[in-house]
Amino acid sequence: MILSVQGVRKVFGSQVVLSSLDLDVDEHQVVALIGASGSGKSTLLRCVNLLEEIDDGMIWLDGSHITDPRVNPDKVRQRIGIVFQSYNLFPHMTVLENVILAPVRVHGRSSKEATDAAREWLTRVGLGDKADAYPDRLSGGQQQRVAIVRALINSPRLLLLDEVTSALDPELVGEVLSMIRDLKGEGMTMVLATHEMGFARQVADRVCFLDGGKVLEQGPPEQVFGDPREPRTRQFLSRIIEAGRL
C-alpha cells in the first residue's frame, strides 16, 4: 500500500470538510475521487501533500507516518507530485526552467542532466518546441501538460491530480486526459479529483464518492456508476446525467 488515510478530520472555522475519512491506495492503482463541489476532494489532496494541516487522524505514505509533526514536510513533498486545477506554472520562468527547478534545487541533479531529462519529457508529451517559451504563450492544455511534466520529472511515488481539466476549454481536455491515460499504462499510482465522470469510468481502478466529509461509497467504476448502493450517490449521479456529463 502506498497511501493510507486513516480517520482524517479537517475543519475550516466551524465548517467540517473532512470527518474521519479513510482511504487506501495500492501501488499502480488509479483512484478517482468524485463528489459535489465542496465535498472535500481538493482538501483531501492538499492534506495528503501536507499543504493543509489535518485536525485529526493519520496519513501514511509508503509505510511511514507523514502527519507526524516531527517529519520534515519538504522531504515528504519530494516523494509526491501534485497538479492543480489552475496549472500554477511560474510565469517568470520558461517552460524548461519551470520543469528543472525542483530537480536541480531539491533533488540535487546537475543542470545538464535535468535539462536533458526535461527535454525528453517535453518531447514525449508533444511540447518539445515549447521548452524556451514562457507559460503565457501556451494554451491552457499545453500549460497543464507542462505542470504534469514538472511533477513527474521528480519520479514521485504518488501523483495527485486536482481537477486538472476543470479550467480547460472543452477541446483541450482530451490532450490532458490522454496524457493521464498514458501514465496509467506506465503504472503510475494516481489519485485524481475529477468532474469528468466518463474519464473516471475509463481510467480509474476504483471510484470513491465523497459526501459529508467521508468516502460514502467506493468500488470499481462499473459498480459505482452502474449500480450505486447509496441513495446519495444515486442522487449525485442522476444530477450529473441530467447535466449531460456522463
Binding site: N49, D74, K75, R77, G81, F84, F90, A102, V106, N154
Partner: peptide, 21 residues
C-alpha cells in the same frame, strides 16, 4: 498563494520558494 503552494509542493523549502519563485 497558489504560486507558493506550487513551489512548496515540488519540495522547495520556504527559503528556496522565496528566492526562486
Amino acid at each position: 498563494p497558489s504560486q507558493l503552494a506550487a513551489a512548496r509542493s515540488l519540495g522547495l523549502t520556504y527559503r528556496q520558494t522565496m528566492r526562486h519563485v
